[in-house]
Design a protein around this nucleic acid. Structure first.
Length: 457
RNA sequence: GGCCGGUUGGCAGAGUGGCUCAUGCAGAGGACUGCAAAUCCUUGUACAUCGGUUCAAUUCCGGUACCGGCCUCCA
């Protein structure tokens, strides 16, 4: 299966050819752990989770290495520490755990590596040394800065010329910078700030440095895919390129740059700084995590995505439909199967998840219409195998509809027995009354030839 | 201001130089059902705007309008 991806580097869709098919390597920028993650922080990992699943399917799970970092040294964390009095360690550990929990709920597979910046300080220092040696960096007032003028192609990823960058620049220009666009590789820390000893004194790394250092260490100086949110293209990814290419002349850094579109609220980008954000855990109080995941996948990853609670409810309804199809064949043996090739083809075409989902609807329809057990077995297996590529429909259908509360289930079963007796006595008024009463509690009854079943609304 | 991207039916959202047709939700009609629910069948409504290329454009090219992203920390 030929995968194609939209490559930001050339602003077009390209056929994906791995450098080494026995080890396909992908790096995606992860969160800075200073606060609970919002929906925007979830959309990107979900998008790349689908790519990770697809790569594993096409090249084999053991032939893909996926790295997603954790930024645990940053001025935002420092500010949080000043605000709350909590220790840096406490803040980063707690936030990291929240993030991992959120990702697990969204059925995001764990990457092969989740490196933390603070564990790669030595590599970062080595990288800075290399840049100084190669004449691409300079020291100024305790800082080490990247010298953008030393790199002829600077700006090639984001498609900016130096002139453009300076024209609209709102950069705060420190007077020790040779060029206002020069960015920090290493900066000094005061004794009360987090820091490490380095050839340039006690200090800490600039933000861009960590991704260059960690990707190089874990994936090599040239690897296949580098991903992240589209807001990282400039300056973060541009500067990563600059660091890595200048530190390792002759290497290519990342061959394919893949960026996911921003998550919007009311037509405006969701962000912490604008204050228009929803936290993942607060949204998950209103709908299952799987519905949120499906909602993200219902728009192409590259497009901006406008979040609404109506959309979330619709995603929930779509899952109800899928799980209904699975529920009616719960007694049918679950066997292994290959995913539907149209689903694979849709995902291989620059991760067209909306198209893949439309095929999933067809597969569910086939399952609903299957008249023999053999046909049901096959349709069920195909639906499940296809859904797995998208990371959905992993739950037990009964649990999806009923939740896990045994006492409540026993109460409802008793009511159903009561209603069955009324129905047998043709007392439909009583039967309907019982049904209405349960409905008011959010319990929907369904009469089938095999008896009455129930689910939560 | 510079650089990108978008504008598809009531809503969400794919896609295509011509074909009967995305798909889902909502709407209408029907089957099934004691009535429902679930499911199945049938069904209506669309390609921002103005030009150009073409036998043919929603689809390609250019202009306009509107919306959004980046240019500052940001997934």
């Amino acid at each position: 299966m030929q995968i194609s991806l939209y490559n930001t580097l050339r602003r077009r869709k390209e056929e994906f050819t791995p450098i080494d098919a026995s080890n396909v390597r992908m790096y995606v920028c992860g969160p800075t752990v200073y606060d609970r993650a919002h929906l925007g922080n979830a959309k990107t990992p979900v998008a790349f989770d689908v790519l990770y699943r697809l790569l594993r399917y096409v090249y084999g799970p053991e032939h893909v290495t996926y790295v997603s970092n954790i930024t645990d040294v940053d001025d935002k964390i420092l500010n949080k520490h000043k605000e709350t009095g909590k220790s840096i360690r406490e803040i980063t550990e707690e936030t990291y755990q929240w993030y991992i929990d959120d990702m697990a709920k969204l059925n995001v597979l764990a990457p092969n590596y989740r490196p933390r910046a603070t564990e790669y300080i030595d590599e970062m220092i080595e990288l800075v040394k290399l840049l100084l040696q190669n004449g691409h960096a300079y020291e100024a007032e305790g800082h080490v800065l990247f010298d953008v003028d030393s790199m002829p192609g600077y700006g090639y990823l984001s498609g900016r010329s130096m002139k453009e960058m300076l024209a609209g620049a709102r950069i705060e220009v420190a007077d020790y910078k040779k060029n206002p666009a020069d960015f920090i590789l290493w900066k000094p820390s005061s004794p009360d700030q987090p820091g490490w000893d380095s050839p340039w004194g006690y200090g800490r790394p600039g933000w861009h440095l960590e991704c260059s250092a960690m990707s190089s260490k874990l994936l090599g100086n040239t690897f296949d895919i580098h991903g992240g949110g589209s807001d990282l293209i400039f300056p973060h990814h541009e500067n990563e390129c600059a660091q890595s290419l200048c530190a390792h002349p002759g290497e290519k850094f990342a061959k394919y740059w893949v960026h996911s579109g921003m998550l919007m609220v009311d037509g405006v980008k969701m962000s912490k700084s604008l204050g228009n954000f929803y936290l993942i855990d607060e949204v998950l109080e209103k709908a299952p995590a799987e519905a949120l995941r499906l909602l993200f996948l219902s728009t192409h990853y590259h497009q901006p995505f406008n979040f609404t609670f109506e959309g979330l409810n619709q995603a929930k309804a779509t899952l109800d439909k899928f799980y209904n199809a699975l529920l009616r064949v719960k007694e049918v043996e679950t066997v292994k199967a290959e995913p539907d090739e149209r689903v694979v083809a849709a995902l291989a075409d620059d991760m067209n998840t909306p198209l893949a989902l439309s095929h999933l609807h067809e597969l569910a329809n086939i399952l609903n219409k299957a008249s023999t057990v053999e046909a049901q077995k096959e349709a069920k297996a195909r639906l499940l195998a296809s859904a797995e590529l998208l990371g959905i429909l992993w739950q037990d259908p009964e649990k999806w509809f009923k939740g896990g509360n045994d006492d409540e289930a026993a109460m409802i079963e008793a009511k159903i027995a009561e209603r069955a007796a009324a129905k047998k006595a043709k007392d439909y008024a009583l039967a309907d009354k019982i049904r209405e009463k349960l409905k008011a509690q959010g319990i929907i009854l369904e009469d089938t030839p095999q008896g009455t079943t129930w689910k939560k609304a």
